[in-house]
Computed example of a mutant assay.
Amino acid sequence: MRQHWEPEDLIEVWTLLEDDMKKVRNKSGATRLGFALLLKSFEVEARFPESAGEMPAAAVGYVAQQVKVLAEAWAFYAWQGDRIKRHRREIREAYGFRANTEEDQERLAEWLAAELCQVELSRERLAAAVVARCRNDHIEPPAPKQVGRLVGKAVEEFKAQFCPGTMERLSVHVLRGRSLARRRRRRTHRLHVPQLRPPRQRTRSCARPHGPGTPTSSSLTRSNAAWFDTGPDRRGMVRAHTTSQ
């Protein structure tokens, strides 16, 4: 709990209002002062101090003046027994809170591991988130040491869940990356393969001299074309060729 308070902050936070005074009216001495201090400290932090030394000295003196009890009486307030348990229960009910249970702590650890540990590494911030969540749910937060153990448990649970899941996701991404790389290499290979063209056929020229009775290439072409002609005048062309010979 905050130990140093400026006078204006002390007045704003630790002043007992009319409803507060009604709650301490039927009490006296150290019991009256102890109840008033527990009441205001719970209003400030939504939890009870773990010991008398946690209470700010300035707050003890200021509240003692209001309830008209000596500040030294605070040292005689009993921190064990049924009386302080009854006072805490009465204060929780006044603010609409309830005591935390083991089930609450298990649920808080699961919440931290599932939602906050993956985005927040600071254990102090995680502990502050636990206290804020308890206040929001109107549950008295566990003691600071209990909150620390709860945060440690949540971090270990997150690590146990995070490592196998991360390795599995990495394996899937690696396999996909390798498959994509193979596809790209194949596509690139196809794009860079040169197109093979068949070699051009060279026409050989006739070396024999053309005599008077030697048919020329053009006449041979015309003669051969007649044999492959499938038109209606095919027979006439054949007869004309035979007659000419």
Score class of each variant (00 low, 15 high):
Ala114Met: 05
Gln161Ile: 04
Gln161Asp: 11
Arg135Ser: 15
Gly148Arg: 14
Ala30Tyr: 07
Gln105Pro: 08
Glu54Lys: 13
Glu8Met: 07
Arg83Val: 10
Glu140Cys: 15
Lys159Glu: 15
Lys40Leu: 03
Trp79Glu: 06
Ala129Ser: 07
Arg235Leu: 11
Ala57Gln: 13
Val60Trp: 00
Gln66His: 03
Pro144Cys: 06
Thr221Arg: 13
Val193Pro: 01
Leu33Asn: 03
Pro141Met: 06
Phe42Asn: 05
Leu37Met: 04
Phe35Glu: 02
Ser223Ile: 15
Arg149Asp: 11
Glu110Leu: 02
Lys159Leu: 14
Cys206His: 01
Lys22Ile: 04
Ala160Gln: 13
Leu39Thr: 07
Leu180Gln: 13
Ser218His: 05
Tyr95Ile: 11
Glu43Gly: 00
Tyr95Lys: 09
Asp20Gly: 03
Ala132Asn: 10
Gln195Ile: 09
Asp137Ile: 04
Asn26Pro: 03
Gln66Phe: 03
Thr221Glu: 07
Phe97His: 15
Thr188Leu: 09
His4Ala: 10
Val60Asp: 00
Trp111Glu: 08
Arg183Met: 08
Arg107Lys: 09
Gln245Phe: 12
His4Thr: 12
Glu168Trp: 09
Ser51Gly: 12
Asn136Val: 08
Ala207Arg: 15
Thr15Ala: 06
Ala154Lys: 01
Ala127Glu: 01
Leu191Tyr: 12
Ala36Tyr: 02
Lys23Val: 12
His210Cys: 00
Gly165Tyr: 06
Gly231Ser: 14
His241Gln: 15
Ala94Gln: 15
Arg186Asn: 13
Glu110Pro: 01
Phe35Tyr: 13
Glu115Thr: 11
Ala226Pro: 00
Gly53Ala: 07
Thr188Ile: 11
Thr216Gly: 04
Arg182Val: 09
Phe48Arg: 00
Arg133His: 12
Val147Tyr: 05
Met167His: 10
Pro142Leu: 03
Ala94Trp: 15
Leu39Met: 07
Asp19Tyr: 02
Met167Lys: 14
Glu72Asp: 15
Pro141Trp: 07
Arg190Leu: 13
Leu37Ala: 06
Pro56Tyr: 03
Arg235Ala: 07
Arg86Lys: 14
Thr221Trp: 05
Ser179Arg: 10
Gly81Arg: 01
Ser219Pro: 01
Arg186Ala: 12
Ala71Leu: 03
Arg208Asn: 04
His87Met: 06
Ala181Met: 05
Val67Asn: 03
Leu16Asp: 05
Arg176Cys: 02
Gly81Ala: 05
Ala99Thr: 14
Glu93Leu: 14
Arg235Asn: 05
Ala75Val: 10
Ala58Asn: 08
Gln80Phe: 06
Phe228Trp: 10
Ala99Asn: 07
Trp79Thr: 13
Ile84Pro: 00
Ala154Asp: 02
Pro209Tyr: 00
Trp227Asn: 09
Arg98Trp: 12
Tyr95Ser: 11
Gly61Val: 14
Ala143Ile: 06
Val60Lys: 00
Val131Phe: 00
Arg208Ala: 09
Leu191Val: 08
Arg182Ala: 13
Arg200His: 14
Gly213Val: 04
Gly96Gln: 11
Val24Gly: 00
Ala58Trp: 04
Leu150Ile: 03
Thr214Ser: 02
Thr15Asp: 02
Arg92Asn: 11
Ala226Met: 06
Arg123Ser: 13
Ile11Tyr: 14
Leu17Arg: 10
Gln146Leu: 05
Met55Tyr: 09
Leu37His: 03
Ala160Glu: 15
Val172Trp: 00
Asp104His: 13
Asn224His: 07
Leu16Glu: 06
